[in-house]
């Protein structure tokens, strides 16, 4: 690409390093303090130990939180990935009159504050049997994820040539054969990325979950929230590190399957 003009100046590079530091330092700090055996959080760390990690993994409550988060994230993935992908696929493949309206509807949950969605769901289902179930938490997350995956897949599908599917049909493939022989292999990495995105965005979600979980279904971020509300206990750093590690792993998988090109499509 002909980006010859305005080679990044020293100022720009310097500013870049500072901003990157601003973005990353909190994460680094949390990681360092999680290895500090002291009872009170302080910097610099007074030593090095895995004490709080042992504490975390031997504690039933935290263990449960972690498991619940995984359950919710998996359930969310199962719900939101098909919804988002199918809609994005329809958006790219067909032209129809109400396209713009459908498109707007699909994006609304993405731009509605989670706080309000959480409250609305609590009020609507707080007195039904769905109250505090994994299902309702996953559904809350799925509203956001579906929108998000829809936006991402639209971008991914913009490079996809639907003629391959027509060719398959033309050569005698039925709908199922077409999907398994052509669509799936060609869009495999996009689908994997969608799954990973759905999982991680649900795993770390806290604003809606605060309103919807009960002590039985409490997820890791909410547990972190409640425990930090009362005291700055060092085990919270471990929980945070675990959240971060999940994010890093998924992040690396996404870049491996997908490259960063797709990642930069997250902006509006």
């Amino acid at each position: 690409m002909g980006k010859t003009i305005a080679k990044s100046s020293i100022f720009l590079n310097f500013a870049c390093v500072l901003i990157s530091a601003f973005i990353l330092i909190p994460v680094v700090i949390i990681f360092l303090t999680s290895l500090d055996p002291a009872k009170y959080i302080r910097f610099p760390p007074s030593g090095f130990s895995l004490l709080w990690y042992e504490y975390f993994f031997s504690n039933k409550v935290w263990q449960n939180g972690l498991l619940n988060s995984v359950y919710v994230a998996v359930l969310n993935t199962i719900i939101s990935v098909p919804c988002g992908i199918l809609a994005a696929y329809a958006y790219r493949k067909y032209t129809f009159k109400l396209k713009n309206i459908f498109n707007t509807i699909m994006i609304i949950p993405y731009v509605t504050p989670s706080l309000l969605v959480g409250i609305a769901l609590l009020m609507a289902f707080g007195r039904t049997i769905l109250r505090g179930t994994y299902f309702i938490v996953a559904i809350a997350h799925a509203l956001w994820s579906t929108s998000f995956i829809y936006i991402l897949m639209q971008a991914a599908l913009s490079n996809y040539d639907f003629t391959y599917e027509e060719a398959a049909k033309d050569l005698g493939a039925n709908l199922f054969q077409m999907f398994s022989e052509v669509t799936l292999p060609l869009l495999k990495s996009a689908f994997i990325a969608a799954i990973l995105f759905a999982f991680i965005s649900s795993f770390g979600e806290v604003t809606m979950a605060i309103f919807l979980v009960t002590s039985k279904t409490v997820t890791l971020p909410v547990l972190l929230w409640t425990s930090l509300k009362y005291e700055l206990h060092p085990v919270a750093t471990v929980a945070s590190v675990i959240c971060i590690i999940f994010a890093i792993v998924i992040f690396m998988l996404i870049t491996k399957f997908f490259g960063t090109g797709m990642l930069s499509k997250i902006g509006m």
Partner: peptide
């Protein structure tokens, strides 16, 4: 992008 998936509490 990385901080997007680190939850708000953290």
């Amino acid at each position: 992008i990385f901080p997007i998936w680190i939850n708000l509490v953290v």
